[in-house]
């Protein structure tokens, strides 16, 4: 099927759609060639700021979708493929670089600060919010598996919750954790996480081992 040309309308439609991250990634991957060709023609005199805006939004969206599909290394590689001049001068792409640094260094507090505090273009807001939610869920699972006991303030920092309220042992903050099955000990002032198990997307075959043995048996014969 022929790909419609990369335009602001097309991009906006994709970014604001509620498509699963993998589908978004697939769709934007197909547009990278067009973006690449637009940027190659960017040196000629007949291209203007319209192209820069389009390219900036395309690369920023593509970057966020990389993070949304948990491809941090590949997101870093993408920043090396973005035209240098655009990367250096575009505020939205500079935000992406700051975000990448925070994610790369697992500075959780910094990640939330970048996502919430820096000015992102309106068109990117849905993706930014989706990534914030994704990052929060991912961190919650990781914290639940990594800590046997955790201070409320530490947990709040990891999940981007208000640290001051956490220090005051705010009931709402505590309930954020207890509703996940964690227990709160008021005496020790510690949370005891319950490890969250994520079931795989595909249904597991119950006779997998038998099949493997059959294959081995065939070859052994």
């Amino acid at each position: 099927m022929e790909l419609p040309p990369l335009t602001m309308e097309q991009l906006s439609q994709l970014v604001t759609s509620n498509a699963p991250p993998s589908q978004l990634f697939e769709a934007l991957s197909r547009y990278e060639l067009q973006a690449c060709l637009i940027s190659t023609g960017g040196n000629s005199s007949n291209t203007g700021s319209g192209d820069s805006t389009l390219l900036s939004l395309f690369y920023s969206s593509f970057f966020l979708v990389h993070l949304l599909t948990d491809q941090v290394s590949e997101a870093r590689a993408l920043t090396k493929r973005i035209p240098e001049a655009l990367l250096q001068h575009d505020p939205s792409l500079q935000n992406c670089l700051t975000l990448l640094r925070a994610v790369w260094q697992t500075q959780h507090g910094q990640v939330y600060q970048v996502l919430r505090g820096l000015p992102w273009p309106d068109i990117l807001q849905p993706l930014v919010r989706r990534y914030e939610s994704f990052f929060q869920d991912k961190t919650l699972i990781a914290v639940s598996r990594s800590y046997e006991a955790i201070r409320l303030a530490t947990a709040a920092t990891h999940l981007g919750l208000d640290e001051q309220l956490a220090k005051q042992e705010d009931a709402n903050i505590i309930s954020n954790f207890t509703k996940c099955g964690w227990t709160w000990d008021p005496e020790s002032k510690l949370l005891h996480p319950k490890p969250i198990v994520v079931s795989p997307a595909e249904p597991q075959s119950s006779n997998g081992i038998r099949k493997a043995m059959e294959i081995l048996g065939t070859r052994a014969g």
Binding site: T139, R145, S146, Y147, I150, K189, L190
Partner: peptide, 18 residues
């Protein structure tokens, strides 16, 4: 250490105190 455990590079757990 927390980053190491959370990224699954280290199979261990952390126990914080008050």
């Amino acid at each position: 250490v927390s980053s190491l455990i959370m990224s699954s590079a280290l199979n261990a757990t952390l126990v914080e105190t008050k």
